[in-house]
């Protein structure tokens, strides 16, 4: 190793350490602070209060407090929002994957020129800012009485998710050799039978990866859920935004902090268990796209 290489190593190592601090500390800080009172989390006198919980000890008698969580989950009924998020994400993921596998498979096997045009159209649809589409839905949904239902939101999220799902699954199915289903068809299967008996058993890696991204889209959405749902059936993200609106009242900010931490936990678990699939999914899109 030359001296120059050593320098490069130090430089690259310190760069990555700084980046890791930037990427992780905001989460750790908020997690830690969510068990404190507002006077500690936003402590003007001394930033160390937020770590040692000086005011928390004075106000609640302990260094940690669950007041924020109690306020959010029980008093403000955050569990209802969590339940709605659960329903919405589950339905969006299953429906988009069902439609997406059928469509993606057809696009990968079509061999005609229009399949290519459908993909280009999907790419253009992918570029549409979601909120511009929402402004197209609102008036018709009000008129037809569809506004405010979870099911409407689910259908909208599925549709908005389709362009991406189609691209991902199209590129995944293109990597499965054609011979596989075609030899099944030579043996007398119809296209559907070949799909069911030959393709479905081997498609799960691609489907799981795509499903993860569908989950993220549905779970993280704010623009659509904030405008299409009523206050009573809100999902978590618009509910958190709602906490902020009434943040002037004492203590509500800590409700929002606790809610934010609660909503982050599932995402954290997702990365923990599916890191490999997320990485491979981003790559698959890149290699083909």
């Amino acid at each position: 190793m030359t001296k120059k290489n050593n320098w490069l190593n130090v430089l690259s190592l310190s760069f990555i350490i700084i980046w890791l601090i930037l990427a992780s500390v905001p989460f750790l800080w908020t997690l830690w602070g969510s068990f404190k009172v507002e006077a500690d989390f936003f402590s003007k006198q001394d930033w160390r209060n937020a770590i040692f919980g000086v005011r928390t000890l004075v106000e609640t008698g302990g260094i940690f407090t669950l007041n924020g969580y109690k306020g959010a989950w029980i008093q403000e009924e955050f569990w209802r929002a969590a339940l709605n998020t659960g329903i919405v994400t589950f339905c969006v993921v299953t429906i988009s994957l069902t439609l997406g596998t059928l469509g993606g498979y057809a696009l990968a096997r079509s061999g005609f020129r229009y399949a290519f045009w459908i993909l280009i159209a999907a790419l253009i649809f992918r570029a549409m800012p979601h909120i511009t589409l929402v402004s197209g839905y609102l008036l018709p949904f009000f008129e037809l009485g569809l506004w405010g239902h979870l099911s409407t939101t689910i259908v909208v999220l599925v549709a908005i998710n389709q362009p991406f799902t189609l691209w991902m699954l199209h590129s995944f199915f293109s990597t499965i050799p054609k011979d596989l289903d075609e030899s099944a068809m030579v043996d007398g299967c119809t296209r559907f039978q070949a799909f069911r008996h030959v393709i479905i058993p081997v498609m799960w890696p691609g489907v799981i990866t795509t499903g993860l991204f569908s989950f993220l889209l549905a779970y993280n959405d704010f623009a659509i859920t904030a405008l299409l749902l009523t206050e009573t059936n809100q999902t978590m993200v618009p509910k958190i935004a709602g906490f902020l609106g009434s943040a002037q009242e004492q203590g509500n900010v800590m409700f929002a902090v606790a809610a934010v931490v609660s909503a982050t936990v599932p995402l954290f678990m997702l990365v923990l268990f599916f890191q490999r699939q997320i990485v491979s999914g981003l790559t698959a899109g890149a290699v083909k796209g």
């Binding site: 649809f125 549409m128 511009t132 589409l133 929402v134 402004s135 197209g136 839905y137 008036l139 018709p140 259908v155 909208v156 549709a159 908005i160 389709q162 362009p163």
Partner: peptide, 8 residues
């Protein structure tokens, strides 16, 4: 849900 809203 994507093409029609743009018309709308």
């Amino acid at each position: 849900f994507i093409a029609l809203p743009i018309v709308s």
